[in-house]
């Protein structure tokens, strides 16, 4: 790193200066030490607007090394603008290897999904977080919400779920579904679909959350208890879909609705593009055969659903957008 900088990639490894990285790493370590606790940090200006993942990018920049393999997804896809740009950014400023393959990535930066392929020990999942405070829409005062976290006063979180059931007959929150981490802090899992919540529970991977605009970092260390809040008589449930992926016939995965034409034509496909492509490119694998068969009869023997049309906003919350106002 002593050479004269010729372009931005040689300015400093992974763009951030070393002091900033140390500051962010301290925040990450504190976050890991107190699972689910929001650690304030001095968020920097990044060469992208707030809402485009500045928090996640700063976390990634602080933990990435020359030997890492980076994967970036946006709503599960490797090929959307946000994912492509961030991937290109790190390729340029850190000169690291990049991949779309979940299994071979060491760091996965994500906007609002957890990959379908199970994560393993040693992997790090970095979430981009628009609004880190799960209590924000119930109690707007930051002074008060901090106190509520400190004193473990989380009754209000259930008020939100109560309202859901009162209005919709069930807990209608489908994304950014609040969780309790290691029996202590209530945490916003970022606007991932609640379908992904169970994947957070006792995950072997390290999960880091960065909120750039709100200047907060929090973490779920490997093998940590992550429990979705619910009522005894209205237990937590994930979304189910009444048909498999239209492209790879996968079941029990999260699907996106894709609009095909202007005449109401649409199909449901895997939101995780890497997962979907792998299945399609390996038609002879036992996985493929088994699922294809299952998919054939899957339409008839599908389980009952709480939601007739899957929870699906073709594109859930946008950059910087919070939980929807009820």
């Amino acid at each position: 790193m002593t050479a004269q900088p010729k372009d931005i990639a040689t300015y400093n490894f992974a763009y951030l200066d070393e002091q900033t990285k140390r500051m962010i790493r301290r925040a990450i370590l504190k976050g890991i030490a107190i699972p689910g606790y929001q650690v304030p940090f001095a968020s920097r200006e990044m060469p992208m607007p707030y809402g485009w993942g500045t928090g996640g990018v700063q976390v990634t920049a602080s933990i990435i090394g020359p030997g890492d393999v980076l994967k970036v997804i946006d709503q599960g896809a490797d090929d959307t603008t946000n994912a492509v740009s961030i991937r290109a950014f790190f390729k340029k400023v850190a000169n690291v290897a990049v991949t779309t393959d979940t299994a071979s990535a060491t760091i996965i930066q994500t906007r609002h999904r957890i990959p379908e392929h199970p994560l393993t020990a040693g992997q790090v999942l970095v979430y981009q977080v628009p609004i880190p405070e799960p209590l924000r829409f119930l109690e707007p005062r930051e002074t008060e919400t901090r106190k509520m976290h400190a004193l473990e006063e989380y009754g209000l979180m259930h008020v939100k779920l109560y309202e859901d059931i009162a209005k919709h007959g069930r807990i209608a929150t489908t994304y950014a579904y609040p969780v309790k981490v290691e029996g202590r802090y209530v945490m916003d899992p970022s606007p991932t679909p609640k379908f992904d919540n169970p994947k957070m529970h006792r995950s072997p991977a390290l999960q880091l959350f960065g909120a750039g605009r709100e200047k907060r970092i929090y973490a779920v260390p490997p093998f940590t208890e992550v429990v979705s809040l619910d009522f005894e008589d209205h237990p937590f449930e994930v979304q189910t879909f009444d048909q498999p992926c239209a492209l790879c016939a996968a079941e029990n995965v999260y699907l996106d609705e894709v609009i095909l034409d202007d005449h109401g034509g649409h199909m449901f496909v895997c939101s995780d593009t890497d997962h979907c492509e792998k299945r399609r490119n390996a038609p002879t694998s036992p996985l493929w055969g088994g699922r294809a068969e299952g998919a054939g009869g899957g339409l008839d023997q599908s389980t009952p659903h709480s939601t007739p049309t899957p929870a699906l906003r073709a594109d859930p919350p946008h950059k910087g957008e919070g939980k929807e106002k009820q």
């Binding site: 209000l156 259930h158 008020v159 109560y162 309202e163 009522f231």
Partner: peptide, 27 residues
Amino acid sequence: LRMTVSAGANVGERLMAVGDRHYGKIR
């Protein structure tokens, strides 16, 4: 009061705050 949540939730909040987790009973 919490002006933006329902009357039922306003009444139920204290119960939930002390750990009541049964929707039907709270209601």
